[in-house]
Design a protein around this nucleic acid. Structure first.
Lengths: 230, 230
DNA sequence: CCAATTCGAGAACAGTGCTCTTGACAGGTC
DNA sequence: GACCTGTCAAGAGCACTGTTCTCGAATTGG
């Protein structure tokens, strides 16, 4: 078994090297990275890659999945580092962590939240990690509700179909959350995604030189909308 | 000159056919459409395409530019069809028009607002058409302010750097608009983009069966945030 | 020590964007 | 009518891609 684990170990290292090289090329080539290019960089034949990944799409899937995990870890860690009762602090920390991760790993963020690769269909394994960042944000609202720090918005504004849909979602994801509050939490998540995406691969408004402060303020607007106490 | 215009006419028709075929392939192949494939569909050699477009990127640029124009036209037309004083009606009409266009032309929307093509840099011609949809939305807030229907939000919440940045942007884009209101207008545009993107190429929440109503409600939330009277 | 498994390399196939050359037309001019 | 001139489509070719197959070498388990 020692010998086997030795072989397995060098194989795992090889897989890591391939993924690292692929991530490096991701920054320049985007979603259509070249298997041959990463093979060249690693000094091996292109066909050798297929000993480790059955196809290029499979390599991409692995990168996507690990990126989801990394982003989810970053957001959850940031949230966990703040006092449970400091709802607004948790909200800011989580959103800032997501933005910081995206700015540090722009090509991987684009892989996750950019336009989908045409022929490629994300496997089911990615759906759970993909839910972690928004779930962290919704968890803040849920905790605030449980602690009585947060008064749910009036449900009267919600049309009946939306209220039913959101009630179903709440039942399966965040039990006990009112539909109207869930709607605002999802609006916050949508806003966060939009903010990061615009900053990353949108042509940002030319005059915006203080992007950190702008981000904080837009995030604060959503915190107010959700009802997180100041 | 008659003959020349005849030649020019048949050439223009050829260009239109190429663009139409390219748009068709865009739906399946995404941003990396194949020149050879559109040439095949048109029954011509791939090299013949280069008589009409100097490169594949140039063809893509043309499609992008026309897509921006189409989206801008749709949003502006929707806004113009509502009474000038009905701010909330204009807001809903504009946002719904943007979503409807995106749902009708998903691949072109992905081209505009998806992850940027790696090697490709958008020329300056696209920056003005790209500003038209958000400018239409901001125009609604501007008109409401001028008509006295809309009270600007307190500027106290804005950190000084953000206030300065936004004041500069307002001065060049929507003169007279307070920074705090501009921030909320931009939040509305960001939310609209996020909503459409999530619905189009995000994994939409499974239980959301009434997407129209959900979209309307989220858009209404932003209308409230901006301060559009009910 | 030997059979079994794993690994890397090389060749091959079909496809891609793009360039260059060649030949076939149509327009206007002498 | 003959003669340029500009335009167009086609074909060949280059360098590249993902993927599969085969073959020889290395390593491992029994």
């Amino acid at each position: 078994m020692v010998a086997n684990s030795l072989r397995a170990r060098v194989r795992a290292e090889m897989i890591d090297e391939i993924k690292a090289a692929a991530r490096r090329h991701l920054a320049t080539d985007g979603a259509n990275l070249s298997l041959r290019a990463v093979a060249r960089e690693l000094g091996m034949a292109s066909s050798a890659i297929y000993r480790y990944f059955p196809s290029r799409d499979d390599l991409l899937t692995t990168l996507i999945l690990e990126a989801y995990v990394a982003l989810g870890d970053a957001v959850e860690a940031a949230d966990a580092a703040v006092d449970r009762d400091d709802l607004r602090g948790r909200w800011f920390a989580s959103c800032r962590a997501a933005r910081a991760w995206a700015l540090a790993n722009p090509s991987e963020y684009a892989l996750l939240y950019g336009s989908p690769v045409p022929g490629y269909a994300a496997p089911d394994d990615t759906v759970e990690p993909a839910m972690r960042p928004p779930m962290t944000l919704l968890g803040i609202a849920r905790d605030g509700l449980a602690a009585g720090q947060l008064t749910p918005p009036p449900a009267a504004d919600l049309p009946q179909p939306v209220r039913d849909d959101l009630a179903d979602i709440a039942a399966s994801l965040v039990p006990g959350m009112p539909a109207a509050l869930l709607a605002r939490g999802m609006a916050g998540w949508t806003q966060l995604f939009g903010l990061i995406s615009f900053e990353l691969f949108g042509r940002i408004k030319g005059g915006l030189s203080h992007r950190d402060d702008y981000f904080d303020h837009q995030i604060a607007l959503m915190a107010d909308l959700i009802g997180l106490p100041r």
